[in-house]
Design a protein around this nucleic acid. Sequence first.
DNA 1: CCAGTGAAAGTTAGCGATAACATTTGTTGG
DNA 2: CCAACAAATGTTATCGCTAACTTTCACTGG
Lengths: 345, 345
Amino acid sequence: MADHKRARIQDVAEQAGVSMMTVSRVLNQDKKVSDKTREKVMAVVEQLNYRPNVSARRLASTKSFFLGLLYDNPSDTYISQFLLAALKKCRTLGYHLIVDEAHTDINKTIESVKQLIDVTQVDGMILLPPMCDNEAVLDVLTKADVPFVRITPDTKLNRSPYICMDDYQAAFDVTEHLINQGHSKIAHIIGDTKQGVSRMRYQGYLDALRSNQIVTPPEYIEQGSFTYQSGMEAAMKLLSLDDKPTAIFAANDDMAAAVISIAQKQGINIPNELSVVGFDDTQLATVVWPNISTVRQPINEMAELSITLLASGQYNDLSNVKSLDLRHILDFELIERESSSIKSN
Amino acid sequence: MADHKRARIQDVAEQAGVSMMTVSRVLNQDKKVSDKTREKVMAVVEQLNYRPNVSARRLASTKSFFLGLLYDNPSDTYISQFLLAALKKCRTLGYHLIVDEAHTDINKTIESVKQLIDVTQVDGMILLPPMCDNEAVLDVLTKADVPFVRITPDTKLNRSPYICMDDYQAAFDVTEHLINQGHSKIAHIIGDTKQGVSRMRYQGYLDALRSNQIVTPPEYIEQGSFTYQSGMEAAMKLLSLDDKPTAIFAANDDMAAAVISIAQKQGINIPNELSVVGFDDTQLATVVWPNISTVRQPINEMAELSITLLASGQYNDLSNVKSLDLRHILDFELIERESSSIKSN
DNA sequence: CCAGTGAAAGTTAGCGATAACATTTGTTGG
DNA sequence: CCAACAAATGTTATCGCTAACTTTCACTGG
């Protein structure tokens, strides 16, 4: 607050006894600066609390300092949390976020992405599920030479950095959590097949059962689509079986909430007669009764990391990047609430 | 796509046969341009599909083309919907949105608002509930000469344009909806008293009863705070009354969901034995069973309008603005779902 | 008829950064 | 010890626009 005027690059240059260009180089991680100069400049930058003027930067450089975010409304909670974290990170890095909603018609989405690239010249894109697994969209970005980060566990498409949590391991842990509580009749409602995560979660569930030598009848596996509606339908089938499961692991919270609702309508007590576990820790999980045990994704960290990766420019040229370096796995958290508890004997 | 290069102000100037400055004046609504010239310039602008370069503009002018949004997590759905609509509108107007979350400690919030103003030089702020009714925050903005728009029905503070829906009328309509279905024992759970909307909704409820000559015992009025938890507590009191209400109007969806959950636990059938109505049409309303009848706020329109108002600059000087012109009331929508229906006889 | 006036349009000089080229400094080998 | 080349740093022009000043021009009225 000393001078009440923001420091400019010139101020830094003068104070450090170098040219503006040298300061610029330091700030843009240009290699051609000696360590001594770099340290000297950085010291002054800190001292003056200098932050580059984004507009001037954008005007003078070829970079746009815009990042795009393409989403497709998987859930409001997910979006808003991701969005807020991403916006905050952007602010600290001097970037701006352009948010675009995918259209249900994939061709329109592609058109709008093309336009977005053309008009705003984004320096990078973030793709949220399920767009992140759509080859056509990825092709557009690759062709336009726009770096992108995918929030997905799908390793199949080794074309960009991707950020995920270990969905497989989380599902494995959830299932073991149920087994440890005495359950052996554990059903699963699979998520939307178009999304890679569904497969991973399903596999984790299967492997946990197998490694505990538990055999499950095929009727215990229902196909859902991540919607509340699909959860209701699956629950009705599962709860009308002669040999009912004592625990249901739904691939997301919406479907888990649906299970709880149907069970209650049928007078089934949760968790005494039926344990239910969801996935994602959305707002829903704490808003239905009993609260849903679930898995929390590190959404904030994912958002921040995706911005950081794109801003760093380290993936602007993928030709020299090793496949393994594309992968960023973050930790999940298992959250036990009232919907699952020790099986009564 | 003709030249694949964006037109600059110079291109427009040349084509129109005027100076760049004249074009700039036209674009910035400067009065000192003859109508003839203005039309000529606008024609070329359209023809070349010219859009000003925001960065250049920001760099050269005193405006920042940033707008700030201060929120306080009333609900994820609300935020994300508002945010997305606001971001979209900003994009079309060449503005950028800086989003900031209010701190529970009001002093910290004030500090962060001050900093936001200082660092980003926002051209205006949008205040979401409940910050919009906090005098201390408003004082900071007024003192810093930052125009702001409040999303609130509170008319008390006549210091800025405000956008709202008619909460009073909506609550009135909800109550009459219940009366029309044959109910006369209608309870109400009031929202957080710190928020103006709670009072309006409560008043609408009262007046609808009165204008239908329905007398209600004081036990039918419970004080909540917009949280699920508070809704549960209120519901337990209301449903343990000897003379139970046959309908409960909760001031938001979270509390309505809580009522449904408690009622179901007590074996009360909804809607046959008890009708429940919420407010806000959040995601929650369609995710619990039965789905909650509710009132939908025009969130998208509110977001767009608030951006438009700030961008227009029409409120930059409030001294000549009439009090009535500050008010912007948008239409709500009553949504009938399964949680309220004709009272069984 | 012309100085005086005010509206409309033009000119000039940056805003704060970077690209591209120019220069200085440092390092190497014969 | 110095030519030759690479590394580090500096200079200049420019990005697209607007603030502030200047000029032009049409119209007054004494």
